[in-house]
Design a binder for these strands. Structure first.
Lengths: 218, 218
DNA sequence: CGTGTGGTTGAAGTGCGTCAAACTGGGTGG
DNA sequence: CCACCCAGTTTGACGCACTTCAACCACACG
C-alpha cells in the first residue's frame, strides 16, 4: 500500500459502512422525498453524509432545463465544494437520513488529523473522476450506450446484484443522461426487446445480460 | 475568511504565479507538442504542475472515439487521481515545461502540513466543479451554446483579454465539446456572421461581444 | 510547384427531440 | 367494489440539429 491517495474507496463505501459517520461530530437530520437539503447558490457551511436513502444533486439552467449531476447512495458525502457557495442543489429522492457536519468543525479536525485530510482528498478526487466519466459519456455515447452505462453503474453503486429498484423517475434518468424521458423509455423498451433487461415494472428492472450491457458502454 | 475550502483559487492561479511551484521538491521536465506526459491506465506515482505551455488530457473509447477532458494552463496540477492508475492520458499541445512531484514525497509533505492538504483538497474540489460544469454543458447545451461557452471559458482561463490564440486544433475543440470538427467550424462561421467573434485566422479569434457570448451559454 | 495537414463548406442521412395520444397503476371517493 | 382521476410512462409520427460523406480551400514545407 504505497499510494496515499488510493487507500480508501473512491466514492461509495460498501453498504456495510452504512451506520458509520465520517467524523464523530455533527447532527443527524431527516428529509422527505423531494425535500431540499441545500440549494445552488447558497453559502456552504455544512457538509452532509448520506446515512440512508438516496439523494439527487442537480442544476437548473436559465430556461428551465435541468441537469442531474449525480445520484447519491448511503456513505456518500455531499456539499464538499471548491468555492463558498453550492454549485448544485440537493434533495431527497426517498426518505433520507443525513449526518450534517459543520464545515468549521471539519476544518479544525483536518488541521490535526492528516488521515482525515487524506480521506477527504480521496473523496474529492473520486468525485472528480465520477464527473469526468459522466462528461465522457455525455460527450461521446449514444442513447443506448448511455442507458446501458446508467444501469450497470447503478447496479454497482446501489444494489450490487442484478435486480434493480430504481428510486428515480424517468425524468431524473433523462436529466442525468442528457436525454428526454421519451428516449429513455424507448431505449429501455429496446433493451427489453433484445433480451438484455427484464422490466418487471417501471421502477423495477432486472439485468439479464450484464456482460452485454457492459459491452455497450464503450 | 471563515471557509477553509474557499481560501485558495479553485483551479488556475493567475498567470503571475507562473514561476511558483506547489511544493519545493521535484524535478523540472520538458515535453514537445504531442508528446505524452502520462497515459490512461499507467500507475500514478507522480503529479505534474504545468509551469508553461498548454496540456490536454483525454480518454479514448474502445472504437477510437476520443473525449478531451480538459485543457490545462500554467499553474494547473495534473495527475491527482482517485485510484492508483491514471484515468486519462495527458500530452503537450505546445512546448511544455512541467514540475514533476513524486507522489510519495507529496504525501509526506501533506502529513505535517495541513495547509498543503487543504490546498490539494481545494484543487481537487475545483477540478470536480470544472468536470461538473463540463458535464452540464454536454448534457443540455446545443452546438452554438457549447462553442460560445468554450470561447468564454478559454478567454477567462488562458488569456484574460478578448484576443485569443488557440493552441488546439478544431479536432481538439470538437472532442472537448462532444461535437465534430464540421459542426465546430460551421458554428464559428455562424458566430462570425452574427458579428460576435472575429476570426482573424483559424487559431486566432477575437471576442467582439463577450457579453452576448456569455448570454448564449445558459 | 507538388504534397500534406488542417480547415471550411455543401448535400444528404439519421438519431434524438418534439408533439400528440394512449396506457398503467395507485389513490380516492361515491 | 367500481368509477374516476392523476402522475408517470409508453408509443407513434414527424421535424430538426447534428453527423456523415464528399469536395474544395489555405497555408506550410520540401
Amino acid at each position: 500500500m504505497n499510494l496515499a491517495f488510493a487507500t480508501l474507496p473512491p466514492v461509495a463505501p460498501p453498504p456495510t459502512m452504512l451506520g458509520q459517520t465520517l467524523v464523530p461530530v455533527g447532527v443527524t437530520l431527516r428529509r422527505a422525498p423531494g425535500e431540499e437539503i441545500f440549494a445552488e447558490g447558497e453559502p456552504v457551511d455544512t457538509v452532509y453524509q448520506v446515512m440512508s436513502g438516496t439523494v439527487r444533486t442537480y442544476r437548473l439552467l436559465g430556461d428551465g432545463r435541468r441537469h442531474v449531476c449525480d445520484f447519491h447512495a448511503p456513505g456518500d458525502l455531499l456539499g464538499l465544494e471548491a468555492i463558498d457557495e453550492h454549485c448544485c442543489s440537493a434533495e431527497g429522492m426517498t426518505d433520507v437520513i443525513l449526518h450534517a457536519i459543520p464545515l468549521k468543525a471539519l476544518r479544525r479536525l483536518c488541521a490535526d488529523d492528516p488521515a482525515l485530510s487524506q480521506r477527504l482528498l480521496s473523496i474529492a478526487t473520486g468525485g472528480m473522476q465520477r464527473s469526468q466519466n459522466h462528461a465522457s459519456m455525455l460527450a461521446r455515447l449514444g442513447a443506448v450506450e448511455r442507458v446501458a452505462a446508467f444501469l450497470v453503474d447503478f447496479a454497482r453503486r446501489f444494489d450490487a446484484d442484478d435486480e434493480l429498484d430504481l428510486p428515480m423517475t424517468r425524468q431524473d434518468i433523462a436529466d442525468y443522461l442528457g436525454l428526454t424521458i421519451h428516449t429513455v423509455s424507448r431505449t429501455l423498451s429496446q433493451l427489453q426487446d433484445q433480451g438484455l433487461i427484464d422490466a418487471r415494472a417501471s421502477r423495477r428492472v432486472r439485468l439479464r445480460r450484464q456482460d452485454e450491457l457492459l459491452g455497450l458502454c464503450a
